[in-house]
Design a protein around this nucleic acid. Structure first.
Lengths: 223, 223
DNA sequence: CCCTTGTGTAAGCACACGCTTACAACGCTA
DNA sequence: TAGCGTTGTAAGCGTGTGCTTACACAAGGG
């Protein structure tokens, strides 16, 4: 399917420093590890955990597959490491009332940003691997508690998880089911609809009536 | 893991007509086919397509695995047939304005009803198998057009698909991620929240303010 | 009776997978 | 130079998979 990019020319790699870190060292374990991680992310995202093979990942990374086991121990451990990449960073660096919209826009962002890739890994691997559901649960818990905290309602956690479920579902429809018109709809349009609807669930989120484009109004408190 | 029910006593099967069709025929191809189909549904739902094995399904159905290939040709064809079971029936037999709530309640229904099983098959197999996304897309199209028809809005299809995405996401959270409290929340409570929120998206759906239980109000037109 | 057709079974083929092993090339210090 | 730990490689082991083959019964027709 995909052409054979990344066929690294053994040692003496040319000049093209591709991560902004120590360009052109011939036997660099850190670089190799990172390369494997990146390749694994792409392959897991494109095919799901079960369908992805260690040989594929090794080939894409341009390394021998034995290295994968030296560096990560097992295929499952590799998946875990791929999914654990930052992730919870966003929760702690984004103000809670913007968390949902930020995440939504991340889901809606086009074309293999690292973030969309990670979501695809979740979605495509979620059915198997049992590492995936666990990670989704853990990450989801962080998002949910952050969102629940700012809704004063008694069932705030439920409400927050319902919102997250919508996020996941939208990602599923766009990334793996690819159903039109949702798959290629304008992020702004989707965002407006979702935020408007969620106004009933989590009243503190920004975003009022549908069709307004980016939500910027209603910046402050709730009654 | 699961106890070995279904260890059919070869020929001379006892009396218990279990499908309401031609009880107790010793070598009944139709019955065997149906048994395989049922077993496949259960195994695919519990483990996802890739992780499920033909041997598992055969054992659960109490038949030789070679029969599976005689009757269905391949594992993938079996998946397709399992997912194609009725499905679109619901769309044509349910009045559009109740379609969403009916589907939602199906998703929320506890414990392996055939419907929840089929949803689990979708969700757990959606990442791989590429038969699954296709079927979800096809089925989703039917739901979406039915829902879109009753919303007069120009972007009715988008709105309908967003609603379906929520459905899928809620199913994912409950069935495969199993995140609490959503996983074991009261169907009525979830339903009320979702319908209330969707009132902004698809105004013709029943269901107004949250916390009311089943919605019955606002039966008619939109402005 | 044999022959054919439909249903069920035991055994195994070919292959791709995750993972391991034995070894070579390199960079470094002495 | 030799010694040593690190990084990379080629080859293959064991296993489980989807799927096939060759055969055993049952029933009907000549």
């Amino acid at each position: 399917m995909d052409g054979g990019e990344y066929t690294r020319d053994q040692h003496r790699s040319a000049g093209g420093a591709l991560e902004g870190e120590s360009p052109q060292r011939p036997r660099d374990a850190r670089e190799t590890r990172a390369r494997i991680l990146r390749a694994a992310g792409a392959v897991f995202a494109g095919r799901g955990y079960e369908a992805a093979t260690v040989r594929d990942i090794a080939a894409r990374a341009g390394v021998n597959q034995a290295l994968i086991f030296r560096y990560f121990g097992s295929k499952k451990a590799l998946l875990t490491e791929v999914m654990a990449q930052d992730g919870k960073e966003q929760v702690s660096t984004t103000p809670p009332e913007l968390l949902f919209e930020t995440a939504l826009r991340g889901v809606l962002a086009e074309g293999g940003g690292a973030e969309a890739d990670r979501l695809a890994v979740y979605l495509r691997s979620i059915g198997s691997a049992d590492a995936a559901p666990e990670t989704v649960r853990a990450l989801g818990e962080e998002y949910a508690t952050a969102l629940a905290a700012l809704s004063g309602a008694e069932d705030g956690t439920l409400r927050a998880q319902l919102a997250m479920a919508w996020l996941l579902g939208i990602g599923l429809m766009r990334v793996v089911v690819r159903q039109e018109p949702l798959a290629t709809a304008e992020p702004d349009a989707v965002c407006a609809h979702v935020l408007a609807a969620l106004d009933r669930l989590l009243p503190v989120l920004p975003g009022g009536e549908p069709g307004r484009g980016t939500g910027q109004e209603r910046p402050g408190g709730r009654p």
